[in-house]
Nucleic acid binder design. Sequence first.
RNA 1: GGCCCGUUGGUCAAGCGGUUAAGACUCCGCCCUCUCACGGCGGCAACACCAGUUCGAGUCUGGUACGGGUCACCA
Length: 546
Amino acid sequence: MNYQLLADILFPDVTGTPEELEAKYPERNLPSNAIVTRIGPSPTGFVHLGNLYNALIGERLSHQSGGVFYLRIEDTDQKREVDGAVDMLIRAMDYFQIRFDEGAVADKTQTNGRYAPYYQRQRKEIYQIMAKFLTQQGRAYPCFLTAEEIDQIREQQTANKQDPGIYGKYAVHRNLSIEEIQEKINAGMPWVLRYRGEETDKFICVQDAIRGKLEMPRNRMDFVLLKSDGIPTYHFAHVVDDHFMRSTHVIRGEEWISSLPMHVELFDVLNWKQPVYCHTATLMKIEDGKKRKLSKRKDPELALAYYQQEGICPDAVREFLLTLLNSNFEEWRMANPELDCQEFLYTIQKMSISGALVDLDKLRDISKDVLSRMPAETLYIGWLAWCKEYHPEFAELLIRYHDRSIAALNVGRTAKKPRKDLENWKQACEFMKFYYQETFAIQDEMPEEIDEATRKAVFAEYLKTYDHTDDSSQWFTKVKALTEKLGFAVKPKDYKKNPEQYKGNIVHVTNMLRIALTGRANAPDLWEVSHVLGEEIVRERLTAWI
RNA sequence: GGCCCGUUGGUCAAGCGGUUAAGACUCCGCCCUCUCACGGCGGCAACACCAGUUCGAGUCUGGUACGGGUCACCA
């Protein structure tokens, strides 16, 4: 068989050579330990936690090592492509502080980096050059099998209890003569380019950076390199791109492990250096006591958009993923509560292998912790940004009452052990609404044990002695005096012992004040809250009850 | 079904032949306390199973079970 002739028939317009590509996309000039890696999402319009999970690993490893982190859009499946998906993806990554050094930008006509293009469909010529090369080497051939014919082959194989696929004697177009091929092409029959696999009982062995040694049977399949539209399959694109983009590491989900033999085969045949593979664990979800893969349809928490909509602080999501990813992160965080999580040294060695469950309770805990560590001004900026997008009315309040909002965020925050009231920005809008007249509402009932007349007397007496300039302890002394004067027990224990001797206890008094001032029985320190609200609002809210 | 990957409390996990088997989340109790939150103390709760190697096994080997992945002109 004249492979050179075959290659010219198949790729008449392809004139480039692998050598030219090597020259065009040279080795990167980086220190030997610098990691170059990427994420390669498909523009389907759905960005999920797994994308972020892998992105975070790549981003950390590359940036910690002084390497390069880039974005490649794997858009080889035109059918699944959704408009605006890339823009959405980049914005989502940016929201979670994943920044790319080079790679695709939302505008397809623009590029950022010397290994461009970063959209796979724009790299067609590169793949064609390599495909032609493999054809010349006798490692690839055109296959004219239709989907129906392949189905038939599979049925036959299943009936015979043989492995399904195109290989060995089932690769019926493998040894077509040049004339037969020419004839079919002239007849306009569509074809795919298949790799010419070999019957073998050998094994391959790959040192996975996360999992250690991976052993599996060597590839024997005539898998597809180029689809009938001349666009490569994932397998071919991965090998070609990660070689010419000079990735040192390939970080991807464990679902790729089973196609590793194909990739290893291609790197071998092309005589290219294999990148370091890092196969990450799949994120799981528990349902009815069983673990299962997170599903796009059933689990909203899989979509990154969920975290944005809920207003979960991006740092919290990052820290949450970090605790899943690196078992020593939590320890580090406890030892270094004040450091930015970017300062944590991320290591592949500490990565877990088995699939982690996404535990929203844990996320909430981390989130409260992260928010409690932030200064009020920083919180304000993040919260306002979120409100502008998801809760515009609240954003207006935050702007109109800027100083009061900052003061409100500072309640209980400046202490050595800050309060952890805030979980996320959506919840913050609910929690903080009593600070604004526009959103203030009475949510809890006044205590039933206290009759209305007594309640009014409490408020009247409180207002009579209230001095906005009192400090916290002066204020509380007055509250205690009022409590005693109106026949309430200052110590809850006294009341518990002899309830008939009192109208109630100090908890009743402060609860009524708290409900009147904040609308709720549970709220932060009343003196502090009062000073955020200001004297006018304090008096107004209490007077309303008299 | 073939091939792969995995399996320590409900969850995330430490552990690298000898431990009372860490820690975090959740839940429960107590303390602190004007409520709540925070914080402190304490509690419930685990090495999937069976063989083997060994003086000794969560840790090594084999098998079984269970879970997951993959077997496309999808990535």
